[in-house]
Amino acid sequence: MPPSRASRRREASDLGNEANALTPAPLPGGEGSNRVAVVIGSGSVKCAAALGLLKVLDREGISIDLIVGCSGGSLYAAMIALGRSAAEAEEVTRRLWTRELTKRRHYPSLFRAMLPKIFGFTEQFGLVDDTLILDRLQVAFGESKFEDARIPLYLTATDFHTGELAVFSQGSVVDAIRASIAIPYVFRPWKIGSHLYVDGFLSDPMPVGVAIKHGANVIVTMGFESPYQSHATSVLKFAFQLSSIMSNNLLRANYAFHNLAHHTEILPIIPQFREHIHLFDTDKIPYVIEEGERAAEQQLPYLRRLLAAELS
């Protein structure tokens, strides 16, 4: 018999998963003070643009009170929160995110999908062997825990069985990132405790609500719509296209809701890429960071004015 919803909640809480927490975090700065959050949404390698945003905030002496990451954004949110410099983060991405990651198929999943009566289909289905990405995440983040972060860090994934947004703020950073980037059909859902998690973009591609819940009143967002393909020439590309359609519509719906339902100031930073950035274009990271920096600089006057106004 599966565990009841209530018992799953208790287990999730023990694991540092705040998906069902009911009480918003208090505002440490007290009423009237600014609490700046950076939310880095999904967008694979494009999320490196957040490093450009970080450069601008650093240069201007604007401190971040909390940081939220989802999917590809979880990598950068974690690196920023753990105190990695932009140069270090760029180097980590180059070593971590390469085409080799998807080269090896996960044959057990293939056999289970094609011959379920013989091999028995399981929910931990993914076409790509995730051994390499796990190894690389271990190299990049080691035994880092959320508790080691210099800036409070929240990473999101999606509970496979309930569809709810799951928020991680305690425990292993590698586990949370692995859950957050469990791209459907590609990487197997990731089990933490008794829960199975899939990519965070499936519940909210830009989880602004997490920052609001934790008391941020100025939220700088950077997230990207999933690219569409002109032709779906394989089953995987077909699945990606459907996934992009759903997640982009979800992004807009959620973003509209958060913009309109709260009095929080949400400042979107939207880099404009003149070049196409594909999933593994890590050679374009310097360009991506540059565009992130440029987009952040454009919004800087408003951010400065807003912070000054709120502080006065």
Partner: peptide, 12 residues
């Protein structure tokens, strides 16, 4: 264009 992108992103 930069404002239109925000309007589009938020469904306006």
């Amino acid at each position: 264009p930069e404002v239109l992108r925000v309007l589009e992103l938020s469904g306006f």
